[in-house]
Structures are given as structure tokens and as C-alpha cells.
Simulated assay, not measured.
Amino acid sequence: MLVLLPPSETKHPGGAGAPLDLCSLSAPELTPVRARLVGALMDLAADPAAAREALGLSPAQAGELARNAALRTAPTLPALERYTGVLYDALDVRSMTRAQRARADRRLAVGSALFGLVRGTDAIPAYRLSAGTGLPDLPTLRTLWKPVLGPLLARSGELVVDLRSGSYQALAPAAGAVTVDVLSERPDGSRSVVSHFNKAHKGRVARLLATTTAEPADVVRLRALLRRAGLHVEHDGGNRLTLVVPAAEVVRRA
């Protein structure tokens, strides 16, 4: 099973790992695009005004530019420890047992605008680049990533559960992947899309899938696994699952 996670704008700072070595990252076929984007971000950081405009940053976010300027020299962290925010708080890899963390490292991968896809143990620095960013003198990120990342995902040979946000799915869709929508259900039975707390619930799903000893081979078995864990999951056919969360739980547990 391969579970695709979105990245986060926020990153844990620092790290104890050696500086970025693109050749050591998983999926070496992505190295040429990774190298091109790393070089472009470092060059862009040398012009703070242009970098802030391209990356959508305010003058107060100068630290983000400093991170991009130091991509090849900054210390690294494993990818699952680099990203932070609501989804990663719910995933909470630091609380996992050794066996659970080993499964998480095998099963989880993060979609990244800069690196394409990174596995849990891939050592990466903090950086700033979003899926919708346009970089000067380069094609769109979708144009760069889709030809190399799309085939990589297509030949995974595993059940793929795609929890990425829409902008990261657009960089390279994972054909045949199971997706999960989150809906809030009110006491009267009416439902609405969960927006702000969507990441927290997907983070809990990701933790379950990362740590379970089960190996679901298709969407039906995946649905059964989630239901056994006490989640209200609906499947109307195809590869889309709907996680239904009581309205009171949306806020209380997020």
C-alpha cells in the first residue's frame, strides 16, 4: 500500500542530517527535475524582491528566502519529520513504535512541488515552494512533473491511497488511486464538505494506514479496514471513499 500525503507550507527548522544529496533520494528518475528546481529556487533567492513576488511572500517572511538560498548546505531531516501542521500533528510519527514507524516509512510518501515525491526516510532541508507557484523562465510545475512523476505513480504495483490536496494531485494524477472525501454530518442528517479541519481527519486516516499490520489490496478491503477502526466510511462504487464525521467531532477532535 502506498499512501500519498500533501506537504505543508510550514516546515520544522534545522535538522541533524547531512546537507541535501539529490542522488540519495528515492525515485532517482526524478533527480533531473529536482536538480533543476533546486537551482532555480537558489538563483531566485538571490533577488529577494523577485523571490517574494514569485513565491507570494511578505517582507516579514525573509526567513523563507534564506531557506531556499541554503538548499544545498542546510541540515536535513527525514521527510516525515520535516513537514508540520494539522495533518502531520494528527499523523504524529514521533509517537509511533519502532515497528509502526518502519511501516510508515515504507508506506507513506509526500507529494512535493520541489522534490516530486519523497519517502518517509528521504533527508530533505526546509524549503518554500507551493504547487501553484510559477518560477521565472521555467515551465509550470505540472509541465515539469507530470511526464516523470505520473509514470512513477502508475507503476507502483500497490494499492495507492491519494490523500493529496487538489493542487498536488494536479501535478501528476495517480491513475486508479483511491481518494478520500471528508464530509460533516449534522444531527438533522444534512452534510457539508469539511474544509478547515479536513487535514486533521486525513491525518488520522494516514496514521491508521501507516501503522496497521493489514495489507488491503483494493478499495473494498480498504473500506472494511477503516470501518473496523470505527470510522464511518461510505463507498458508492469506483475508487472514491467518503469519510463522514459528526459535526460535533469536526471541531472537538481537530
Rank of each mutant, 00 (worst) to 15 (best):
H12W: 08
L241D: 09
G39K: 04
P7I: 06
P216S: 08
A51M: 00
D89P: 06
H232S: 11
L209G: 04
D105N: 15
P32D: 00
T97N: 00
L22Y: 06
L152N: 13
R207V: 01
A172L: 10
A200P: 12
I124D: 11
V118A: 09
L225H: 15
D21N: 07
Q100C: 04
R34F: 03
F115C: 03
D21Q: 08
G56E: 09
E185Q: 11
L91M: 06
G134Q: 12
L171E: 07
L22A: 05
R107P: 09
L55H: 10
V205Q: 04
R191W: 13
I124P: 12
S95Q: 02
L80P: 12
A248E: 14
Y88V: 06
N68Y: 07
P6T: 10
R142H: 05
A60V: 03
G189N: 00
E64T: 06
P75E: 01
V161G: 13
R101I: 00
V219Y: 01
P136W: 12
H196D: 02
G189I: 00
G203D: 09
G150D: 03
G39T: 06
S26G: 15
R253E: 15
V233N: 12
G189P: 00
C23H: 12
R36C: 06
A104C: 13
R72C: 11
K202F: 10
H232I: 09
T179N: 03
G189M: 00
E29S: 11
A154T: 11
G238D: 06
V148E: 09
V118P: 07
H201E: 10
G134H: 08
G166H: 12
L30F: 01
A174I: 11
S24T: 02
L4H: 06
G39W: 06
E185G: 04
R253T: 14
R240N: 03
A247S: 09
T211H: 01
Y168Q: 07
A50R: 05
D105G: 10
G85S: 11
P59F: 04
R204W: 04
T133W: 08
L152V: 13
